[in-house]
Design a binder for these strands. Sequence first.
DNA 1: GTTGAGCGTT
Length: 224
Amino acid sequence: MSRKDMSRYSRPPNTSLYVRNVPDGTRPDEVRSLFGKYGPIVDVYIPLDHFTRHPRGFAYLTFEDVRDAEDAMYGLDRSRFYGRELEIQFAEGDRKTPTQMRAKERHDSPPSRRHGHGGRYDDRDRRDRRRSRSPYERERRRSRSRSPHYSSSSRRSRSRSNERRRSGGGTSTSRRRKSYSRSRSRSRSPRARREPSPRSRSPSPQYRSRSHTPRSRSRSPEAH
DNA sequence: GTTGAGCGTT
């Protein structure tokens, strides 16, 4: 009985497993299947780059039961996956919101992109930047919707696009004629610009002056 | 209507 052997892994803080050393092209479905043998998996997520959209090399697993995760970790940890050794450990920390991650990536880039190169993407990205504000936007166009890596949690609704409404009864009555005169408001702020006077939309002084004079114009028909 | 976002070194 060695006590050291037990200290190999940290205690299961949660049912999230962190799998490292995953080969490229590893799909969440595969990981889920592999780990699913140990127990039901809630979800599998493989973080991708925000610019290149490529797998970073590790994946996250969320088991339903922590003991299942533990079991899977012990059983799959250091095991061979597609010819590679998988390193599994309990996921630490909590998920980060996209905002945090985004800020982090942006903040982590400057220090490296000074001289030399340390950014994930090549510098030529910046060079080719034409009008695109985001580098990943261009990539997105290229790939368009190439099967996002998301996670195998897409079990939400698979078949749902088979209902083509083409019976000919459309008559094309509803043409795409949408009026554009309505989106003129920039901000929907009730009064956050420069009118602290809750005066019920006080009209311009100019106009107000005009209104002050009760012109009896539309009083009589004046039909001559 | 939880908004796919997370550890590459112990």
